[in-house]
């Protein structure tokens, strides 16, 4: 080893004295109040919202055409009136009921289809053909047909929602099942799990990140579809939903209330996505380390 082709330079060894941490001053310095504030996501989002509201208010006042573009304060007032008179909550509850019914029927069918798909080859073919056919079809496009079959009322809306939820969820669930690692599958089988017990004990929890993504996409599709469907044909069996509220207020040129309705649609969408789904994520996939964030 002493004689190599690449002569190494002779360098002296050195040692240094290391200062004690105390002499270096504060090693961990507390952040200032504003630094902490800036690190808080909620505060940053809040600031953006306030700025948008300000711009809105200033622009609407400058424009001064309340029939086409009401001010932010007028909209807030219409929103308050809508809630105070109980109209918006009533409409919202009609919409949400329809949504929940459609969503859960859609989920159930998706779960059955996917279970059949993972347990048999013909099931896999069935699912892939159906999703390829129906997934690109906008749910709204089925509305005329739904009206023909189920008439003017909640069943038509439910049908459309089921269609919008089913394929997105089934597709995600199935790809989630397929991506479950071979090791986990074999581990499950050495425990003696078979059939449905295997699906519930191993496949569903292991594919949960994908399933949750499917649930979120399905929810977003369903919510948009439902509001749009209500706008198109409005009253179902004497009770209108939130979409109908917006349509109605436009007809009476109560534009501030139209904006109030739209804000409500946004708020509900946001609450479910940012609160409910976040909560489910925090309790499941994040806690299990299957998803970062």
């Amino acid at each position: 080893m002493s004689q190599t082709r690449f002569p190494l330079p002779l360098r002296p060894e050195v040692e240094f004295d290391v200062k004690a941490p105390k002499e270096l001053g504060d090693v961990a310095k507390p952040l200032s109040f504003f630094e902490k504030l800036a690190a808080n996501g909620a505060v940053r989002h809040g600031v953006i919202l306030i700025v948008v509201a300000l711009i809105w208010e200033i622009y609407a006042r400058y424009l001064d055409r309340p029939l086409s573009f009401p001010t932010f304060l007028d909209t807030l007032e219409a929103l308050r009136d809508g809630f105070a008179s109980g109209v918006i909550p009533a409409r919202l509850s009609v919409t949400l009921q329809t949504l929940v019914i459609g969503y859960f029927i859609g989920l159930t069918i998706a779960a059955v289809l996917t279970t059949v798909a993972v347990t048999s080859r013909i099931g896999t073919d069935l699912l892939s053909t159906f999703t390829a056919m129906f997934n690109p079809l906008p749910a709204i496009a089925l509305l005329p047909l739904a009206l023909l079959w189920f008439g003017l009322g909640r069943p038509s809306l439910v049908f459309v929602i089921v269609h919008s939820v089913l394929w997105a969820v089934a597709l995600n669930m199935h790809s989630g099942f397929l991506s479950v690692s071979e090791t986990l599958r074999m581990a499950g089988r050495t425990f003696g799990l078979k059939g449905l017990r295997f699906v519930f004990g191993i496949l569903i929890p292991a594919a949960f990140p994908a399933i949750l993504a499917g649930l979120k996409i399905g929810w977003a599709f369903a919510w948009r579809t439902l509001i749009a469907a209500e706008l198109v044909f409005g009253v179902s069996s004497g009770q209108g939903g939130l979409g109908w509220y917006i349509f109605e207020k436009r007809n009476t040129l109560d534009t501030a209330s139209v904006f109030a309705g739209l804000l409500t649609v946004m708020a509900v969408g946001l609450i479910i996505e940012a609160v409910i789904f976040r909560l489910i994520e925090a309790k499941t996939v994040r806690r299990w380390g299957m998803q970062r964030g």
Binding site: T190, A206, W288
Partner: peptide, 15 residues
Amino acid sequence: DRMMVFQEFDQLLPW
């Protein structure tokens, strides 16, 4: 009756 230990670390159920 024939439990198996695999090479891969992902054999535990993460949930």
